[in-house]
Nucleic acid binder design. Structure first.
Lengths: 237, 237
DNA sequence: GAATAAAAGTGTAATTTCAACACTTAGTGT
DNA sequence: ACACTAAGTGTTGAAATTACACTTTTATTC
């Protein structure tokens, strides 16, 4: 029972991307064929990395995110720390850890970050230095490395709670969006249907959602009014 | 820019205690007279400690809390991680750190825990191995060591948000309580007045608040009905 | 250029929730 | 029995929420 002479701290980013076909999460696969499921499928994981010795937590999360997606300046907030002493000691993860870490037996505590991007506007170009990098529909995520499924679930819960209270929906939408898109986003994230007319009544009350002098173009139906949001009026807390 | 070869991880507990004269937080003073404010007053801090190498985060928080208060089994939840690289590098904290730590220059990341105790029922007996241990009214807390004022503020915010959504009020009240006590608790924590009749209407809707066959005794006025809560019906999430 | 297809956009009535407000009751102490 | 103190209790108007269906605007097809 020594105090922690040497343990490692990492950040793991749960980066959600949204577009018209749903809510995705960014996962990476390792190239190493030592890191596979029993059926030979490559093991996926959340993008994460050890923090540098002089680096703050938020800073580390930004760096990791930038290294993997070239995306800068997105919404990124800590949501939970995961510190089970055995979280990186499962058999399935050992071989890979031994192949990439200088101290594979080291305990690692990780801080989970929730990130949000619109897949409409900036299409993040995942730097694939690691192996494959994929956007996976949140409902189709299989078993992940380490405790990453638990971290992902934590992030989904955090996203659901924060969506309404923290005005973060706009991080997931294009700069100009229609009210139907906004509604679809709410329905996807909260897994719940809304009444169109009532939904729009509520939006009218939100002073940070502003109508533009512009309409949708090239659609085979009545073009929708475009909206934008006024960043000045958003309270992120 | 090396990965974190050796950094330290601690937990800091913001333990709130409640009784009829308000909301208190548990603070410790150091004996060392090297650790004082400029006016000579002893520096106070939140109870916290480095985690042990084989110990989970929740486990560490429980241990620290037990070591300082002999209290077991209270509500204790992680609320935020603090990882500024300079959070333990301020001048005011250096002398003391040098006197108690083998590696005083080591970076320390800390995970903040929110704890709740009723000062009515179990009167925690602070083990004063450190120096003084005091319950301080949350409105009378002066400057604390490190970034502990920020951590305390984070905990107060977390408490306020969670009070209504997470059904945690009961952790702060005696096992048997009156509706006036419950209301006073809400008013203290949320810093906001409630209408007595409306408040009681709301409580009636809470299935986890159950009336007992028992009344207050020895009071100089109409004795209040006592209530208890049914732990089975509480969803902590 | 008339007909069709597809989603956008819009109002009202019924219900529920919320907010404001003041007097009576049950016990203790003198 | 009288005084004191906090407990306990209902009603009304305002506001918010829910449920619900038809018309409009564009692009495409014939």
């Amino acid at each position: 029972m020594q105090p922690n002479e040497s343990l490692h701290l990492s950040v793991d980013c749960v980066l959600f991307g949204y577009d018209d076909d749903g809510l995705k999460v960014l996962l990476i696969n390792q190239k190493k064929d030592t890191y596979v499921h029993e059926n030979g499928q490559p093991m996926s994981q959340l993008p994460g990395d050890l923090i540098l010795i002089e680096e703050g937590l938020d800073e580390a999360a930004e760096r990791v995110l930038f290294e993997l997606t070239q995306v800068n300046g997105v919404y990124l907030k800590q949501f939970h720390a995961y510190g089970d002493p055995n979280r990186v000691k499962e058999h399935k993860d050992r071989a890979w850890l031994r192949s990439v870490r200088t101290q594979p037996d080291q305990r690692v505590i990780t801080v989970g970050y929730l990130g949000l991007v619109s897949l409409h506007d900036h299409d993040p170009q995942p730097a694939s230095f690691a192996g494959g990098v994929n956007w996976v529909d949140v409902n189709e995520v299989g078993p992940l490395a380490f405790d990453h499924n638990a971290i992902l679930n934590g992030a989904i819960e955090a996203l659901q709670t924060q969506l309404e209270s923290h005005h973060i929906s706009f991080e997931l939408l294009p700069k100009k969006f229609t009210l139907s898109q906004l509604q679809a986003l709410y329905e996807t994230v909260l897994d719940k249907k809304f009444d169109k007319r009532n939904f729009r009544k509520n939006v009218k009350k939100m002073s940070h959602v502003v109508p533009l002098d512009e309409k949708q173009q090239g659609v085979m139906h009545k073009p929708a009014q475009l909206f934008s949001f006024n960043p000045d009026q958003i309270e992120h807390d």
